[in-house]
Every structure is written in C-alpha cells, then in structure tokens.
C-alpha cells in the first residue's frame, strides 16, 4: 500500500472513531451488536469465512461434473465432435447432489456458537449475573443467537447467488436441445 493511501485510510479511521465517540455517527452496520458485549468475534468470523470458503471451494467440483456431463452428450464421427441424437444431459440437481453436505460444518459450527456465546457469560467473570438483572426481556437470548443467525442468513444469500450462477453456467454449457 502506498504511504499516501495508508495515511488516508488511517485518517479516515480516526475520523470515524471521533464521530462515533461524539455520538454523531449511527452505526448502520456494527457487528458488535450481534454478539454478547465485549465478545471477541474475530476468531468466529474468520472460522465462518474458512468453513464457507472450504465449502465453496469443494463446490467447484461442479465444474468437473458439468464438463463430464457435457462431454457425454457428444460423440466423435470422422474426427468431428457431433451431438448425439436424443442425448439428454444430467439435470442440474444431479450435478449438485451432495453439495448441501459441504455446508453442514458451517451450520453445525454456527449452532455450536450459539451455545458457546451463552457460556461466555460464565467465563472469566460471571457477567450472567448482570444479564439476568436486565429489565428488558430476551437480551441474553438475542445476544447468543443473532450473530450466528446473521451468519447463516448471509451464507444462504451468497450460496443462493452462487448456485444461481452455477445454474446459469449449466444452461450456457449444455445445448438447449439436451436440457432435461
């Protein structure tokens, strides 16, 4: 990074900090609000990104399956690649069979995190004594589940877009007359 860019970024960060401290900036997106107070969520965020990344990485096997599914539609006649008669490609659903299993670790991890967040109130200090005295209902419950649910929601949205993209590629690659 150039020094000028680094200075700009740093000064912007300081500006945001000052504005926040003066109460002039409402946080449209503050991840700290999704977790128990003082909870260091960075490790959890990085783990979720890792699990999601591994799942998406493994889902790239779809392209291998797509290639094989496309190749099967053709035959070679006089060294020419010709579409087989009445060839029907494997369905998109068949090509992504088992993909849901790639994201099970993510779902299990986030579910475990909901319980882990509750145990945070018992670790180091007993902040559960403070949380159980709060007049507002459901503060503890919300602090435990909001973060993981947001993670699941975001993952679901990204995956929906990803598999929409995969479907688009599938439709592009498979000739129209061979679509099931």
């Amino acid at each position: 990074m150039r020094d000028a860019d680094r200075r700009k970024l740093y000064s912007r960060g300081r500006f945001i900090k000052k504005a926040r401290a003066a109460g002039k900036l409402t946080d449209l997106w503050n991840p700290e609000k999704l977790f128990p107070p003082g909870y260091e969520y960075e490790w959890e965020r990085n783990s979720v990104v890792l699990l999601f990344g591994i799942g998406v990485g493994l889902s790239l096997q779809f392209f291998g399956r797509l290639y094989q599914a496309a190749e099967v539609l053709y035959e070679y006649t006089d060294r020419r690649r010709v579409l087989r008669e009445d060839a029907i490609a494997a369905s998109f659903g068949h090509l992504v069979t088992g993909h849901w299993g790639l994201y099970v670790p993510l779902v299990l991890f986030l579910t475990a995190m909901m319980i882990y967040h509750y145990s945070y109130y018992y670790r180091v200090t007993r902040s559960i004594y403070l949380m159980r005295r709060l007049p507002r209902r459901g503060v503890v419950f919300k602090s435990c589940v909001l973060g993981p649910l947001t993670g699941l929601g975001m993952a679901a949205v990204v995956l929906a877009l990803l598999y929409l993209l995969y479907y688009g590629i599938y439709v592009l690659v498979i000739p129209g007359e061979c679509l099931p």
Binding site: P36, P37, G38, Y39, V124, T125, R126, S127, L130
Partner: peptide, 10 residues
C-alpha cells in the same frame, strides 16, 4: 460480587 459481573473485554 467478588466473582465480578462486568465484561472483562470492555
């Protein structure tokens, strides 16, 4: 309480 009920990271 002597067990402390505050948030140590805040």
């Amino acid at each position: 309480t002597c067990e402390h009920s505050f948030f140590p990271n805040l």
